[in-house]
Write a protein that binds this DNA or RNA. Structure first.
Lengths: 376, 376
DNA sequence: TCAGAATCTGAATCTCCTC
DNA sequence: TGAGGAGATTCAGATTCTG
């Protein structure tokens, strides 16, 4: 078995493989037989999540949520899903170089099973990474926390090889000179980035954002490396790989996805090296909610807040709400209520007493923010 | 060490259990035999993750260990850890009420195994929650991302029971009126909150911050509920439970931890009852039928109701139903019918005219409810 | 043409009570 | 225990509509 490609040199010029920068049609495990042992530098896998949906879900405005109910996401049992997971992980490890690494993305429906299977197969977990979504779908029924993140696992094929690629210094430099954390913030893939079919509908139900793949590729590959995506879908991995000067190999079962991905990748312009670091930058100002002050004991439950002229007062409750005269609600709602207004900025309206002086609670929020500024 | 808070239901206050607000010494599974079936409302578990796997996971010079023996050790360790996990999860489920929920915290070393085991045992995962640390330990060797979070799993004992406690409205109000997400931001436990032993060393290696437990308890329990912590350690769960007017039961093997936790909890001052009431939303309001408004003459039979834009209209009949275009039915059914939808909240859809302005009939329901409150 | 309002949408294990 | 009815429930951002 041969691994002809070298990592740092422009391998394409030396000995291009027939499968390089192509999409292989077929089932993941069977299709990977076309690749030699130890032939790829990195694997990004976005396997089916095995969502177990009940009936139809409607938004509060009665519109129907377009759920991921595709055939490829259906499994008969956890055992069936585990067998599927073992099979593709083993096939992937065969084609992965010993110095390569594997990324898998999932949600709580499947990621625990994938992680445990990885460990059972003696993959070596390097990190779990949290993709925090800036704009996740809400929980419409108010029965759970808003499911606002997905989880990635980054693993080496075994515990022994420590020679995997990790561009620590580049990531740190791009991250304002502090080391990159395990929680990342990105928007979901929408707008013009989202691939549409001929009817203007989304071409793939679970297209991942290019920014996410860009950070992964920038972190764990070098220019010229070969990246395998065994569940190629809409081809985000291929598009980003081409743009960042990496090679790709995709495996995909459905012709419609192959066609869409092929067109997409053909339109990608490779970027010059100088532009790349921009992609790993951070964004977004931390929002601080009132209950953070209560939970962190900056405002104790039972504290009495007033407006600047002490005309109104309210008591802070342990759940992070205010109560006054039989009414209760958020700092904003109750501020509006006591004044008989429709709206109110509770942060500037409500005051606490500090050394005899009244100060808006916004002062405390500013303190928290100052402590959080280090974070993205 | 008992707190005498009563719950909304009288039964528990009448016959307090001997184990209530105590720490049971012993191994988790054996000690839980002291508790009856279905006796606790919530469980928070911070299980050990390096007990079985410590050597394999944390030894710095893996490459020097014989590969075959090393793999065998790992495999044996994972199996042992899984058996341990199954055992304590089953013991916990027996003592958990069917309407209760279970929280487990862990890192990538163990959380995938715990999550998969939960699913194997048919626990029903409600959310995975990410605790983002404001001040995590850096990665010193620069070979991985900074491990800046831990993962919690929130689960019901099975898929059927949907009656678990989730204080959605309180969380939302405390979070500046947007629903609480699955990613939480807290500092690690340090400074004066961190328990020290007589030598000034940290009393427990993995003490959790009280703010984290406070959010968990505020989200998934009510005042007076019983919270079990099968790996009690330094007693954060007990301390926060006492402060927030919840009961606790702890299980702990090491006498040193029991002593430290006992002293810690004894020093906790419970919050006053007034600060502990939990904000509830419309779901908790008493039900008012539409015909009450008709019978009390707040809406006269023959009144014409419309939607907010006067696109649809219907006439109120004396029996408390609406009629429109030959159709008749409840305010909800007819609201759905005229819009061609499956469902509709008639209280917010239908409007009546008051001094030239359209107001939702929900305004009238609120008046009825206000009147009912005086009677109570 | 522009500004503001209205509509649409995203990997979702999403109600509760009564008969 | 299953069916049916009451009625509660959403955030951010892109796109389309309207005046």
């Amino acid at each position: 078995m041969s691994s002809v490609l070298t990592k740092t040199k422009p391998s394409r010029a030396i000995a291009p493989q027939s499968w390089l920068d192509t999409i292989i049609k077929g089932d993941c495990v069977a299709a990977l037989e076309a690749l030699p042992d130890h032939s790829v530098d990195m694997i990004f896998a976005d396997p089916p999540y095995n969502l177990q949906l009940g009936g139809a879900l409607h938004r509060p405005d009665q519109s129907l949520v377009d759920a991921v109910d595709d055939e490829w996401d259906q499994f008969a049992s956890f055992e069936a899903y585990d067998a599927f997971t073992r099979a593709w992980l083993l096939a992937c490890r065969r084609v992965l170089k010993p110095t390569g690494t594997l990324w898998v993305i999932g949600s709580y429906h499947n990621i625990f099973r994938v992680g445990a299977t990885l460990q059972d197969l003696h993959f070596w977990i390097l990190n779990d990474i949290v993709w925090r979504k800036t704009n996740p779908m809400p929980n419409f029924k108010g029965r759970r926390f808003q499911n606002a993140h997905e989880t990635l696992i980054w693993a080496a094929p075994n515990a022994k090889h420590k020679g995997y690629t990790f561009n620590y210094d580049a990531l740190k430099a791009a991250n304002d000179d502090v080391q990159m954390r395990s929680d990342w913030l990105f928007p979901i893939c929408s707008g013009s980035e989202r691939l549409k079919d001929e009817n203007g509908q989304k071409a793939h139900p679970t297209q991942k954002p290019e920014a996410l793949l860009a950070r992964i590729l920038m972190a764990s590959t070098k220019p010229g490396d070969i990246v395998l995506d065994p569940f190629f879908g809409s081809g985000t991995t291929g598009a980003v790989a081409k743009r960042l000067g990496r090679h790709f190999v995709g495996v995909e079962r459905e012709q419609a996805y192959i066609d869409a991905a092929t067109r997409r990748i053909a339109a990608v312009e490779p970027l010059g090296k100088a532009t790349l670091s921009v992609l790993t930058g951070k964004k977004a100002e931390p929002r601080v909610a009132f209950n953070v002050l209560v939970e962190s004991d900056m405002i104790k439950p039972g504290t009495v807040l007033t407006d600047a002229r002490r005309r109104h007062s309210a008591i802070v409750r342990a759940d992070g709400t205010l109560a006054s005269g039989g009414e209760a609600g958020s700092i904003h709602r109750l501020g509006a209520r006591v004044q008989g207004l429709d709206a109110c900025n509770g942060w500037t309206f409500w005051h606490y007493e500090d050394e005899g002086a009244l100060k808006p609670i916004d002062v405390l929020r500013a303190k928290v923010r100052a402590g959080l500024e280090k974070l993205a």
